[in-house]
Amino acid sequence: MNRPPALHFALLGALLFGALRLWPSADEAGAREAVVVRSAAEIDDALLLREALARGFDERDHIARARLVELGRTLRLAPADDEVALERQARALGLHQTDPLLRRHLIEMMRLSAASPADAAMPTDGELRAYFAAHAADYAQPERRALTHLYLSGARRGAALDRDAAALLAMLHAGRDAADAAALADPFARGSQIALATRAQLAGVFGPGVAAAVFALPVGQWSEPLPSPYGLHLIRVDTQAAAGTPAFEALRGRLLHGWLRERADDRLRTSLAGLRRLYDVRIALAGPQ
């Protein structure tokens, strides 16, 4: 924790500067209250904050008040033991709106309130199935392939690697049983068979080059020697599973929580839309970033 003191004061400076920018303009008094943000991305947080302030969270919150006292004390806004004056002066500077700690806390409080469902209803089976239908793409799974491979290790075979791979492939083409041929191959730390795996999973096994090649192989035939970071592999795709979506029952838990989350997000959105109607949002482009 070796933060230089300069940063400490720079932060306070930023707070003060921020205070001057977010104070609502006086000529809006009586109309919808103006909320000024620097970018569109800040609108929701600014509205949640403004609503929290409008509900007096900062005044009801014992800790928000202690925080303001602390800031007032640091800025020497009043005698150090006069907490009432310190808080009042801190508010006068707008610190209850600009202090980063207080802002995020108030925003989070308001977000939790705004997203809470009004009831504890669970989805019916029909509702879940409808949710599934609407979001099937989110649960889609890519094509998978299962393979057997014969591995020839570059480390073990050195200069003979290509020759050995070609010889082994010739044996397979000549009808040699795969199990017999395996006796002439090398052990691979991840085994000689990979069950149904996606291209990304195969890239984790053999590197991206072989993974791409595997997905271009016809089923049931031995490949040419394919180079991985480790050596050469003769690969036979044994089965493939088309891209698709799992069955509803297998997804039930995921769907349920997705449904619940979506409801919470909806409720939050509704709350935020309501807040946008309550306030006059303005995006100010001027000023240093």
Partner: peptide
Amino acid sequence: CGVLRLAEDLP
């Protein structure tokens, strides 16, 4: 609860 809110105090 205030300890949490104070926890983001100056560095």
